[in-house]
Amino acid sequence: MSAQKRPLSPHLQIYSKQMTSVLSILHRITGVILAIGSLGLLGILVALSLGEQAFSATQACLASGLGRFALFAYSACLMYHFFNGIRHLFWDAGKGFAIPDVYRSGYAVIVLSVMSTLGIWWLALRGGAV
Rank of each mutant, 00 (worst) to 15 (best):
S2I: 10
S2Y: 08
S2T: 10
A3Q: 03
Q4A: 09
K5Y: 08
R6I: 10
P7Q: 07
S9K: 14
P10W: 03
H11M: 09
L12W: 11
L12K: 09
I14Q: 15
Y15K: 11
Y15P: 02
Y15T: 14
Y15G: 06
Y15I: 13
Q18T: 12
Q18K: 13
M19Y: 02
M19H: 06
M19C: 12
M19E: 05
T20P: 01
S21G: 13
S21Y: 15
L23Y: 01
I25W: 09
H27T: 15
R28Y: 10
R28P: 01
I33F: 08
L34K: 01
L34H: 02
A35C: 11
I36Q: 04
G37C: 00
L39P: 02
L39N: 08
G40R: 00
G40M: 09
L41R: 09
G43I: 02
I44P: 06
I44K: 10
I44N: 03
A47L: 07
A47S: 04
L48W: 12
L48Q: 15
L48K: 15
L48G: 14
L48N: 14
S49A: 12
L50E: 15
E52L: 09
E52Q: 13
Q53I: 08
Q53S: 15
F55Q: 09
F55I: 12
S56Y: 03
S56V: 09
A57D: 14
A57E: 15
Q59R: 15
A60I: 03
C61E: 13
L62P: 00
A63M: 12
S64V: 11
S64Y: 11
G65Q: 13
G65V: 05
G65S: 14
G67P: 05
R68L: 10
R68H: 11
F72D: 05
F72P: 04
Y74R: 06
Y74A: 09
S75H: 05
S75A: 15
S75T: 15
S75Y: 06
A76R: 01
L78Q: 04
M79G: 08
M79T: 12
F82H: 03
F83C: 02
F83R: 04
N84G: 00
G85I: 01
G85Y: 01
R87V: 10
H88K: 08
H88R: 08
L89W: 10
L89D: 06
F90Y: 12
F90A: 07
F90L: 14
W91C: 02
D92F: 15
A93P: 04
K95R: 13
G96A: 08
A98R: 13
A98S: 14
A98W: 10
I99D: 11
D101H: 14
D101G: 13
D101T: 12
V102C: 07
Y103T: 04
Y103R: 06
A108Q: 10
V109Q: 01
V111H: 05
S113R: 00
S113H: 00
V114R: 03
T117Y: 02
T117P: 01
T117D: 01
L118C: 06
W121P: 00
W122Y: 14
W122A: 13
L123W: 05
L123S: 06
A124K: 02
A124G: 02
R126Y: 14
G127P: 04
G127S: 13
G128Q: 06
G128F: 04
G128S: 08
A129E: 01
A129G: 05
V130C: 03
